[in-house]
């Protein structure tokens, strides 16, 4: 393995890794709903056309068909945009995939505001909440390409339903090729003091950069990556709560029901501590470049740093 940086979108890492896993895992079948060029499942489709099925623009049928294939023993990766996978098809995911406990991996792309120009209709801000609430559903949000691939290595060995939230935009590496994913574990990326930032997905990189900006003001926050949102690393949250006086969560998702809420649930039960949730504040997104939107909603490095500065 080389440690060449990847710096690619998590959806691209997903597509490439899936095509690779197809070689050693004949039990993998991939389904898409007319977005394979965008979700990057087209890479698998070209290599293994017999194990790829496009159901057209029919996300409910996508999940139902996935359930039937999984019932017969296949490991099914079902992909489309996140808003459709977790929104439009939610009840099929609940009834026909999660309730019987089937081995379907819902790996959807174009999550959050970094979708950009397509605007609010395509910017899923509710998906973590929607999937987290389903019994037995694991929820994973990779911060970069390396973590995406690590999570996929886990998923092909694991049985049962999982949701993985992928992004459209290129993201700079947070990890390197030595990265190994462990379910239910977060990672301390930067050890600081007094302030702790928990981040997930695309904005983990921005949280690290925000820590750099704050360092120039004498603030040294700890930065923690929370890729496994369900199950969540309760021990790490409790530890961070005991070691810091103020906690922040950062996500390109609604602050209602997402990472911040998941952390708050642990804190209220096990380690009461103040937590400021940064993310989409009960609002829809809009068109613009990803960078413009992250800036507007204060989810870029400067915005995160400013929000933290304003609270301390």
């Amino acid at each position: 393995m080389t440690n060449e940086p990847l710096n690619i979108a998590t959806r691209v890492a997903y597509g490439k890794k899936l095509a690779g896993l197809g070689e050693t895992h004949p039990e993998i079948v991939v389904l898409d709903a007319d977005l394979s060029c965008s979700t990057k499942t087209d890479l698998f489709a070209k290599k293994f056309p017999n194990r790829f099925f496009n159901v057209g623009i029919a996300e409910q049928d996508l999940m139902g068909t996935a359930a039937g294939l999984a019932q017969c023993g296949f490991t099914v990766f079902a992909s489309t945009f996140t808003i459709f996978a977790t929104g439009r098809a939610w009840e099929i995911v609940r009834q026909s995939i999660a309730y019987p406990g089937f081995n379907v991996k819902i790996c959807s792309t174009h999550s959050g505001i970094t979708v950009g120009e397509d605007g609010a209709s395509h910017q899923s801000l509710e998906d973590i909440a929607l999937m987290r609430v389903i019994p037995g559903m694991k929820v994973l949000v990779p911060a970069d390409a390396h973590q995406t691939m690590g999570m996929m290595e886990f998923m092909v060995k694991d049985k049962g339903p999982t949701f993985m939230r992928l992004g459209r935009a290129e993201v700079k590496d947070v990890f390197d090729s030595d990265y190994r994913f462990t379910l239910g574990k977060g990672e301390v990326l930067k050890q600081g003091r007094e302030i702790c930032i928990f981040a997930t997905g695309y904005v983990v990189r921005a949280a690290l950069d925000a820590a750099q900006l704050l360092a120039s003001k004498g603030v040294q926050p700890t930065v923690v990556n929370m890729g496994s949102i369900k199950p969540i690393d309760e021990a790490l949250i409790v530890q961070m709560a005991s070691q810091h006086r103020l906690l922040f969560s950062v996500e390109e998702h609604s602050v209602i029901g997402g990472l911040g809420s998941a952390i708050a649930e642990v804190l209220t039960a096990k380690a009461p501590q103040r937590l400021i949730r940064l993310g989409m504040q009960d609002e829809f997104g809009q068109s613009g470049t990803g960078a413009e939107l992250l800036k507007h909603y204060r989810l870029d490095a400067q915005g995160i740093a400013d929000s933290i500065s304003g609270c301390i």
């Binding site: 099925f53 049928d61 139902g64 068909t65 359930a67 039937g68 296949f74 099929i92 026909s96 406990g101």
Partner: peptide, 30 residues
């Protein structure tokens, strides 16, 4: 869903079985 009892699928929310059966039929082909 409980294969020991011959119950091939969890159902009850209407309209989902047709797609599920299709998935099983595709599995037979594979």
């Amino acid at each position: 869903f409980n294969l020991k009892y011959g119950i091939e699928m969890s159902t009850g929310s209407l309209g989902q079985g047709l797609s599920i059966g299709n998935g099983m039929a595709l599995a037979a082909r594979l």
